[in-house]
Design a protein around this nucleic acid. Sequence first.
DNA 1: TTCTATATATATCGTTGCGAAATATATCAA
DNA 2: TTGATATATTTCGCAACGATATATATAGAA
Lengths: 181, 181
Amino acid sequence: MDVRTLCLGVLSRGEASGYEIKKAFEEGPFSHFYQASFGSIYPALNALSTEGLVVVRAQAQDKRPDKKIYSIAPKGRNVLVTALMATPAPDAMRSDFLFILSFAQYLPPDRVDQLIGERIAWYREMLTRMEGCACGATIPPGANFVRGMGIAVYRAAADYLESHREELLAQIGEADLQVAE
Amino acid sequence: MDVRTLCLGVLSRGEASGYEIKKAFEEGPFSHFYQASFGSIYPALNALSTEGLVVVRAQAQDKRPDKKIYSIAPKGRNVLVTALMATPAPDAMRSDFLFILSFAQYLPPDRVDQLIGERIAWYREMLTRMEGCACGATIPPGANFVRGMGIAVYRAAADYLESHREELLAQIGEADLQVAE
DNA sequence: TTCTATATATATCGTTGCGAAATATATCAA
DNA sequence: TTGATATATTTCGCAACGATATATATAGAA
């Protein structure tokens, strides 16, 4: 799924500036399963605009760069739906956290404990934000489904970390003792 | 976490060729939270070799390109541990599946049902593979912890899809009726 | 039997996308 | 008043992906 399609998806929910599209991937409804950078969003919007898949409207602003507000064009909607019908690429996860933890035996137990603690706090914060949406009726059914899945997965992750934290710490503590012997 | 560090991590578990490192990210113990391509692994191994962080041993093979077997050098172990101590970058997930599903209202219900069905089957297959490892004692505690977390998360995802599939289908079916009116 | 797919094994290369900096200003807190 | 944070876009070097090329063996399908 390239950034062009991602932008069309965001714009299909309503007009937005490049900056606002970035926020949709940083904090908004897509944040837990996709991300995109300025360096890819702005060129993508330019290309989409050239191809007539979106239309731009420049909004002058006091002492700030003009805000360019993009809306999806009918042609853009067709292109989006075609892209949505294609076979999805396999999911890709990148977690420094899990990579680091898989080498826990090389790290000081305190550090491992700290990493897990911070991660649990992060998940709990995300869960509060995602649950406190209270917009059951207003968002489309698919978006609501996906949000629910995010919540279920984050909750499982946080629960796992909480219930296996001590076990891991005990195991690497033991190894430490063996080294000391 | 760059590919060089990723390679050092794999090699810290034992010597391997570039091809085998790729497999560790494709099917092996890192597959559910990291991936790397040939186009990044081979140049990374060359760089690591030049810097003396890994050592190469060429193994001649019958009618095949020489297999280059890499092992981590003591200097490489230090670099790895230093990298592991750095603050982890935030997790990044990329899921075409969830992106597509969040626009379920634009898709034929049959297609949505098919996508969910295939995804459940994929999760169940992964779970079978990950659970059927039966190597409780032989793998390091961190790796075992991370594997357990993967299982917990995949199980939660599969369960959510199974228990909310009908609900979503009913919701987009309703919308279809409204359009037909 | 022949064709196709898959597995082993590495190298290269065009293109995509990231991440950080540059630019400009307003607001809020320390 | 200094620094941080937010709005808003552009640009650019670099990292990494994904596909292709090369070479061969085996296993299964047609």
